[in-house]
Simulated scan of single mutants.
Amino acid sequence: MTSLLPFEDAQKRLISMAEPLASETLPVAEALGRYLAEDLIARRSQPAGDMSAMDGYAIRFADREGPWQLAGECKAGSPPCPPIKSGQAARIFTGALMPDGADTVVMQENVTQDEDGGNDIIRLISDPSPSKGHHVRGKGGDFNAGDIMLQAGTYLSAAALGQAVMAGAGSITVGRRPKVAVLSTGDELVAPGTDTLSHQIPASNDVMIAAMLSQTPAITHTISRIKDNLDSLCDALASVDDCDVIVSIGGASVGDHDLVAPAFERLGGQTDFWKIAMKPGKPLMAGKLGDSIVLALPGNPVSAFVTATLFLLPLIRHIAGSRSPLPVMQTAETRTALPATTHRAEFLRAKVDNSGITAMNSQDSAKLSVLAAANALLYRPPHSPVQPEGMAVSYITI
């Protein structure tokens, strides 16, 4: 029996086949979901000066017992109000710069205001400040100009974009979007929503894989329901030779109608690996066709989903510039006993919550209903012994 490539080795080999794409510069508002191509350095400090965190009165901490003579008003978005002297206070609002001479803010709820000899006097009615600097956000308390705000390879989420803008960025340098072709093969496939005969099934895999790719920066082009004909498959592969990645679904095994390997060979493709030690997903194949990476996924829906999670999405993230493209493994206690495994790693559909993780009763690789009900893939390394209930296991969220 030909030895199978361990799935971790296959992941590494696939990633090593590709280099990240060149970068481009975009307005910050257009960079959601991309990966930062270079470190983002803060151009300003935040806050830019000492700032009030409360509506109240700016005072000197040394004068914390009061009373204070009202000396001015400090508004958010305005230049600093005039300096205050000992015995004075300035009305101040959240987000306003502190006046020179003030170092503490007394909340407005802790004081009362009256008039004495024509002056507005602020008097303390409860303890204003347990410590100097209370209710003041110090200059650079979040970050300072010159700090690295976001490292190269960071995924640009909504929060990351907000941070970039706060750091002074108006544009941002990101990795380019990979072009990905999704080819779905099989004489048995019919268009979604079409009435099916007993020998037919709706073409769900290409919709599912394209949906998974939509969570990455990929630009996806789909060719669905390619017939199990060598010429048709060769024509489809040749038509997308300008793509960075070509993903085929189905036809990657060794049956008479599994034509991905023969088509790949006819077109001069170079196979890097074929068949890996994992379940589901053994027939996975990867190689190069011209400048394109070809990844042939199994046709069973669950096998296609699992291999896309472990191989296709990490490859796209890597090409798009991610510094951590592989899925993140987490741990939880298993709520059920798990049987021993063979020489193949296993990824079980499972549900995880605060009480732990539970493998689904059925692991049939054709049952999309089980996959749709799961939110995790429970990882079982090869040659694992029986795992009793309550032991820690690894999983990937899906």
Rank of each mutant, 00 (worst) to 15 (best):
T2W: 13
L4V: 02
L5T: 02
F7V: 13
F7M: 13
I15C: 01
M17C: 10
A18K: 04
A22S: 12
S23P: 07
S23C: 12
L26H: 01
A29C: 14
A37E: 04
P47I: 04
Y57W: 13
Y57F: 15
Y57S: 03
R60F: 05
G72K: 04
E73A: 12
E73K: 14
C74N: 07
C74G: 11
K75N: 14
A76Q: 13
S78V: 13
S78W: 15
P82M: 10
K85W: 04
G87T: 05
A89D: 00
R91S: 01
R91M: 02
T94I: 13
G95L: 01
L97R: 10
T104H: 01
Q108P: 02
N110A: 15
D114A: 09
D114N: 11
G117D: 08
I122F: 01
D127T: 08
S129V: 14
V136R: 06
R137Y: 12
G146L: 15
A152E: 11
T154C: 04
T154D: 07
L156Y: 01
S157Q: 04
L161M: 09
A164E: 07
V165S: 11
M166C: 13
M166L: 15
G168E: 12
K179W: 10
G186E: 00
D187T: 05
V190G: 00
A191T: 09
T194G: 06
D195T: 13
Q200A: 02
Q215A: 11
T220F: 06
T220N: 03
I226F: 06
S232W: 06
S232F: 06
C234D: 08
A238L: 12
D241R: 15
D242Q: 12
C243H: 13
G250K: 03
G251R: 04
G251Q: 08
S253P: 08
D256Y: 14
L259S: 08
E265P: 06
D272A: 14
M278H: 09
K282E: 10
P283A: 04
M285T: 01
A286S: 08
K288D: 08
S292G: 12
V294A: 14
L295N: 00
A296S: 11
L297Q: 05
N300W: 07
N300H: 11
P301G: 03
A304Y: 00
A320V: 03
G321M: 07
S322V: 04
R323I: 10
V328R: 09
Q330P: 03
H343A: 14
A345L: 09
E346G: 11
K351V: 13
S362L: 07
S365M: 08
V370E: 05
A372C: 07
L377N: 03
R380D: 07
S384M: 12
V393H: 05
T397F: 11
